[in-house]
Write a protein that binds this DNA or RNA. Structure first.
Lengths: 339, 339
DNA sequence: AGATAAATTTAAAACGATTTGGCTGGATCG
DNA sequence: CGATCCAGCCAAATCGTTTTAAATTTATCT
């Protein structure tokens, strides 16, 4: 059923019908109501692609998904979905095989100029991320999930990675730990740098020298967690505590500790960052995992919300949100063992 | 830059330019080449929404993402992305807050009639899934990831869940296990039923009576894995082996076994299903996990491929793929302990 | 009641491509 | 050499909306 036909059946012009449905003021309340009712009854729905053409709006938000289907990605999207439910906006996932963000520039460029989406969300930025410069130059609306150090004005939402890791590290120091190893995220990403800073600052505050041999970078996999932890544990003196970048990393760390015949929470303390997954919970691990916690789902929901605000005209420069991170102490942290 | 302007600059008509770019035969090779080159040079790209309107094609494949951001979802999508890279087709994720597939019917209905996508992929069907009936009735192209028992003809791709679990169970029986518990997926889903059948058939083959107290259903979370396994281990006599539905479930099972002071691979054997995640590998668990394995990413890639075939005219009735599942034996399975 | 203002409604022009059907001019054929 | 065919190109219609600018109806005021 097309607008023309639908309008004819109502005895109105297409113009009026269109206006009635889009909620324009210059149509009488009586007519609007009748149109709305009949639309439902006759099942009329505007052809989305005609609307897109004429309005220039796509009704979609783009996200770029890398080859490495990161596990937190689904949570984030699910959060977006939660917020977008009911709005007439959908999520467009753009495939890419390029891992490095600089290689992704052409992809973002295509996405921004293609008319498929009205805005994009940029993930895991580097301090000076090419994607941000590009999108800004194109004048294309975007929200950064994370932060960068560029002076290009832009909207962002991030969690306080630095504060989280500082507190985690400080807490371990309070417990008497001197050698604390950190398994950080991929090198070069802003959030990894922030975590690194939090770690260093906490050490410095107590006058403990920074030892580069106690820090590694890599993707959040159980395998890397295990390998790095094993290797740390071979050092002598070995670290007595770990700060791990993710739940998966923590799983690997737990295994590594156990494989050396040590006990988590007694011989070795562990704190990890928990994005809050429905399928894997810090509380249920044995021993239960002390964690810095921030809901990835909530971030997704809020991100979608902020993008919506951005699209309805709120200036990007106003949109900056830094979320605090909880530190939840459980059984995996304890006093440093006697030397 | 619009077609009209671009054509003018080339000294050609819009018609010819459009045809040249779309690869129609009635344009000379020389002209086509020139058009292609100039398009790149001048940066002309057809307005996607105009194309959509006039052709009626959306250039997108839809997937519905439930509230519960299942962890295998990202892998599947990532596989799709892999296949779709280079094609000019993107993935549209439709949010839903409805968990039950029957409540999702209106959503699929909207999706199918909205013109936003050319086809959808339906996940985790029930044997008699309303979504299939609906899409078939609407004549809308779709691929089922999984299987149903409906007699509506449709394209599907599934893994041999039944065979996988039958082999896993048989193997445990070979090892002398008599009481084998199964932690299955959500009740009602076809794949859970298939797994159930594989389990029962294996038992029956050896004349071992089926004990309903040894089977549970639920989502694939570590928490449920733990809780169910704990509860099984309280039975007397307790089971000596577990068949678990997912890697997350297996994590819970491992914890439960350890929490009872038992040893996986010696006191209790475990086999789980592994969808192959980059961030959590069966091989790296301690002890390494015996698993039935099938790549979710590969399924996603192939699904995208099959949808493309479907859209280019291959009859749905021809598209049926049943993938075999590997059984990989590692350290988590061993002979049944002496009674 | 007549003039003016306000509230509704409408016709027609975009939006930017694809595609139908027709038009050219040169090659091919008898 | 004239008729026929075909490759190559083009003008104009079309897809289904929104929106501009204008026309109509209704309300308000003196």
């Amino acid at each position: 059923m097309k607008l023309k036909e639908f309008a004819r059946q109502l005895g109105l012009s297409p113009t009026t019908v269109s206006r009635a449905l889009s909620g324009y003021p210059e149509v009488s309340e009586k007519t609007r109501k009748r149109v709305a009712e009949e639309a439902v009854r006759l099942g009329y729905r505007p052809n989305i692609n005609a609307v897109r053409l004429v309005t220039g709006r796509a009704g979609a938000i783009g996200v770029v998904m890398g080859r490495t289907g990161e596990f937190h990605f689904a949570e984030f999207m699910s959060g977006m979905a939660e917020r977008l439910d009911g709005e007439d906006i959908d999520i467009l996932v753009s495939p890419t095989t390029d891992r490095d963000s600089s290689d992704q520039v052409p992809l973002y460029s295509r996405l921004a100029t293609s008319g498929r989406v009205d805005a994009v969300i940029v993930h895991s930025p580097k301090p000076n991320d090419e994607r941000i410069a590009l999108l800004h130059e194109l004048g294309f609306p975007f929200l950064l999930h994370g932060r960068s150090e560029t002076d290009v004005p832009h909207a962002w939402l991030d969690i306080d990675n630095e504060g989280a890791v500082r507190r985690a590290t400080s807490h371990l120091l309070d417990l008497g730990h001197k050698r604390i190893a950190m398994i950080n995220g991929p090198a070069g990403r802003t959030f990894s740098l922030h975590r690194d800073k939090g770690y260093r600052d906490a050490l410095q505050e107590r006058g403990i020298p920074f030892d580069p041999r106690l820090v590694t970078h890599g993707h959040f996999t159980d395998e890397l967690g295990f390998r790095f932890a094993r290797s740390f544990l071979e050092q002598s003196p070995r670290p007595t505590a770990f700060v791990a970048g993710s739940m998966m990393t923590a799983l690997g760390v737990y295994r590594a500790v156990r494989s050396r015949g040590l006990v988590v929470g007694r011989d070795i303390s562990v704190i990890a960052h928990d994005d809050v997954f429905p399928y894997l919970t810090a509380e249920n691990m044995v021993p239960s995992l002390s964690a810095t916690r921030s809901s990835m789902r909530a971030a997704g929901a809020r991100s979608a919300d902020l993008v919506l605000q951005l699209l309805s005209g709120r200036p990007a420069t106003e949109i900056h949100e830094l979320w605090p991170v909880e530190l939840i102490l459980r059984e995996s942290t304890g006093p440093a063992p006697e030397a």
